[in-house]
Nucleic acid binder design. Structure first.
Length: 427
RNA sequence: GGAGGGUUGGCAGAGCGGUUGAAUGCACCUGACUUGAAAUCAGGCGUACCCGCAAGGGUAUCGGGGGUUCGAAUCCCUCACCCUCCGCCA
């Protein structure tokens, strides 16, 4: 959520910044609603002040044994008007709030202006894609060849966009997550978190998934008629740890790492990445979340991105990092780096992590604050990034480390988690 | 699932439907005293919002929402959460 004060004071500038990401802010409607709001609010508060004063007076008269009937009758009428005008004010404010909740974040000045992924800017490229002296198979064929990746079973059990892994491959999947958790908690200073996978609507609103992206989420009905949502990323429960709290300044930064399954409906992505486990309804991810002082959030974004990249370095997987352009950024982000891993079968770099600084956008929705230098409550800045997507990391290993005989070499860094086996091969 | 109890300011804890934004204690801030500290004394000390160039004024807020009333922390309804006991259960 953007700062309403900022929008009021500099509506045109905000609209211009939003335009760079292809979003048209209805300036006229906003202005009209604001005017209405101001009028209704002033009038409401005037009437309330009068009522408060008169009620005090009535109490005084009654205590001294006088007759307050006339004043009470008059206030009865004021009460009627007040009720109406208050209802009007509520309506205007919720309309304004609805608009506010659907306006995306404004891009940081350093974000390249562009329309689509084609306009993203590469900031670095690490590692050399391997040259294969045999026909490269994609991860589906490699996994099926091992007899450990079974999409037919997954379809039978659940349907499309699910995965079933068995044996050493399932273990490798677990090993990847363990490895990431160990690196981030042991070496990068993140505190490990176990969090709920079902969350309430308030949490989804806090991080920005609601109200605008409900169709991307899985909902779960509650017996009491309410509704849970399956988390699309651990970002949601973990960031919401600080919802509605005021943190002591010396507690910042908070750094959390959380391994969780993620559930996405993938509505609107029909036909995209239908083969294999690139785009699934359920996948695992190790998520990094930072809650930081506003002055340091961009340094923290660089650090966090580096933490995510370090996993790929250790796994010896080639990757590149790009700055998303204004048109390709997510709703809540002010700046995002995508890390893309090399997939030889696709002959392309594919997203494996997305690291963003949300500045105060989520914090304002969540009312996540810290006690500032002058004793004022200030909004924190929030960041997060995948560190990394577990399934896609597995895909990258299967493709980059495949051998001519159908076996897969286990990257050195993961061997301690794999009983020190150097290979996965068909049983 | 059943029965009961609770939710008040940073914490503890009062609070008859009417000078209660809320006693009191603790914590915290400023000042006085002191070489310094402690103790003591005096004053201050929630949050959000609105109007205003400012000075300043006003509104809301006692778990959330709704109602009764001229007036609600106090009465009524409802929801959420917490606690205790019983049942069931990984």
């Amino acid at each position: 959520m953007l700062d309403i004060q900022l929008i009021r004071n500099d509506l045109d500038a905000v609209a211009a910044r939003l335009a760079t990401r292809g979003v048209a802010l209805d300036v006229a409607t906003f202005r009209a609603l604001e005017d209405e709001r101001k009028r209704a609010q002033v009038r409401t508060q005037e009437l309330q002040a009068r009522r408060n004063a008169a009620s005090k007076q009535i109490g005084e008269i009654k205590r001294t044994g006088g007759d307050a009937a006339a004043l009470m009758a008059e206030m009865g009428a004021v009460g009627e008007e007040l009720k109406q005008i208050e209802a009007g004010l509520d309506a205007i404010q919720s309309k304004l709030n609805d608009i506010l909740l659907t306006i995306p974040n404004t891009p940081h000045a350093s974000v390249p202006v562009g329309k689509s992924a084609d306009d993203n800017v590469e900031v670095r490229r690490v590692g050399e894609p391997r040259r294969f002296d045999f026909p490269v198979r994609d991860h589906v064929d490699v996994g099926a060849g091992l007899g450990m990746l079974d999409f037919d079973a997954a379809v039978k059990i659940s349907g499309a966009r699910f995965t079933l892994m068995t044996g050493p491959l399932a273990r490798l999947h677990r090993a990847i997550a363990q490895f990431m958790l160990d690196v981030h908690s042991g070496e990068h200073g993140y505190s490990e978190v176990y969090a709920p996978y079902l969350v309430n609507a308030e949490s989804m609103r806090g991080t920005g998934q609601l109200p605008k992206f409900e169709e991307d989420l899985f909902g779960v009905p509650r017996a009491d008629g309410g509704k849970f949502y399956l988390i699309p990323t651990a970002e949601v429960p973990v960031t919401n740890i600080v919802r509605d709290t005021v943190l002591a300044a010396d507690r910042l930064p908070l750094k959390y790492v959380c391994h969780s399954p993620c559930f996405r409906s993938e509505a609107g992505s029909y036909g995209k990445d239908t083969r294999g486990m690139i785009r699934q309804h359920q996948f695992d991810k190790v998520e990094l979340v930072q809650i930081v002082h506003p002055d340091s959030s961009y340094e923290c974004l660089e650090a966090l991105t580096g933490h995510a990249e370090s996993i790929l370095r250790r796994l010896e997987l080639p990757f590149r990092t790009v700055t998303l352009c204004t048109g390709d950024m997510g709703f809540s982000a002010a700046k995002t780096y995508d890390i893309e891993v090399w997939l030889p079968a696709q002959n392309a770099y594919r997203e494996i992590s997305s690291c963003s600084n949300f500045e105060s956008f989520q914090a304002r929705r969540m009312q996540a604050r810290y006690k500032g230098e002058k004793g004022r409550n200030e909004l924190v800045h929030t960041l997060n990034g995948s560190g990394l997507a577990v399934g896609r990391t597995l895909v990258a290993i299967l493709e980059n480390f495949q051998n001519a005989d159908g076996s897969v070499t286990i990257p050195q860094a993961l061997r301690p988690y794999m009983r020190n086996e150097p290979l996965i091969r068909r049983a």
